[in-house]
Amino acid sequence: MKSIKLGNTSLETAPIVFGGNVFGWTLDEKKSFKILDELLEKGFTTIDTADVYSRWAPGNNGGESEKIIGKWMKDRGVRDKINLATKVGSSMQQGGDKDISRKHIIKASEDSLKRLQTDYIDLYYTHWDDDKTPVEETLSTYQKLIDAGKVRYIGASNLSPERLQASLDAAKKENLPKYEVFQPEYSLMARRKFEENIREICDKNHLSVLSYFSLASGFLTGKYQKIEDVEGSSREMFLKDYFNEGGKRVLDAIWEVSNEHMVSEAAVSLAWIMQRPGITAPIASATKISHLKSFFEAIDIDLTTEQMKRLNEASAWREDLL
């Protein structure tokens, strides 16, 4: 399995990054360990998490995903084999304020390191912008963490085009750490924001792009066909807006292409992202070891120009996205 370099870093990833949001949410510790063991064995060594994962699960307070990953790495003695990415900026409180100030980042990074049971984070993301902290303050704080050996490289997620560009400009002008990776929401159900406003900035500044919600919280696996399938479940808040004519059009196109290749719908959805311009790799999760089959299917298949066109047309909300 080929490795892909992330930005101007020494980090490399498999063509698919594993999303750790499921740990402590839809997977308990025992099942999480089994998935992590299988991932490592199969060569998927880049794990993406955040300090607030998985706070939305009943009884959770945030940090559960980091705790499980940290316990697993220590138990297995595999920290040096894992490219570990986590994030800062969200509140541990539902509906709480975003915060990327120096004070918050310093405190949150120490908390993450403790939960992860490690001395350093390979890739540390600005998770959400607070739209008020000067970008120089955020980047200089990361410089402090890098100088202390607690962070190796930095990335950003969910920043507006304006704040992302301002951060890149400040890094160059003030000789501060530069974001090397950008993480946007991007899938067959969510294209416009990245393609219209962010992709060009990432291309011009040589940022790797790792897409999150690549399977639209499971919608693009074809598992959920109607709103009743998710009502009352932990996924309802993420999927409720997809059950419409646009969603059906996308699912029908995926189903057709998956049958032509004799692979899963999830594989087609991931392969489409992997073949889109400006994308380095998708982030995807799995709750069963059997689900990982779709990762290998996605890596192995090559969607034709005609198949990509069909998927593009089914998912485009604007003509200029084709």
Rank of each mutant, 00 (worst) to 15 (best):
S3T: 15
G96M: 02
E64W: 10
F213R: 08
E313G: 11
S101W: 03
L39C: 05
E185F: 05
G149D: 03
E200P: 02
A253W: 01
R249I: 02
Y242V: 12
I69K: 08
I154G: 09
N175P: 04
V17W: 03
K67S: 14
D119C: 05
A14I: 09
G247S: 02
E256K: 14
I279V: 13
K248E: 12
S90D: 07
S269K: 11
E12T: 15
G149E: 11
E136A: 13
T280D: 03
K5R: 15
S157E: 06
D203W: 00
T26F: 08
K178I: 09
K2W: 12
G43S: 05
Y142Q: 06
L311I: 10
K178S: 11
N158E: 10
A57T: 10
E195S: 03
W56A: 13
L311Q: 05
G95V: 09
D80R: 14
K98N: 15
T287D: 08
T86N: 02
D119H: 08
T13L: 03
Y186H: 08
L36F: 02
E162N: 00
I254D: 05
K103V: 14
S140G: 12
D75L: 12
E256D: 12
A148I: 09
N259P: 00
L220D: 06
L292F: 11
S65R: 08
V263G: 01
V250Q: 05
A148N: 04
F243G: 02
G246K: 06
V268Y: 11
D48I: 03
K144F: 02
G247L: 07
L322Q: 14
G278R: 07
D302E: 14
W317E: 14
T305W: 07
Y120A: 10
S264W: 00
Y242M: 06
E231K: 15
A166Y: 01
D203M: 11
K178W: 10
F238I: 06
E185M: 00
A284Q: 03
Y179Q: 07
G149R: 12
E319D: 15
D169S: 06
T280F: 00
L139S: 04
S258D: 00
E260H: 10
W56V: 15
G96E: 11
P277R: 04
D97H: 14
Y212D: 02
Q225M: 12
M1T: 00
E265K: 07
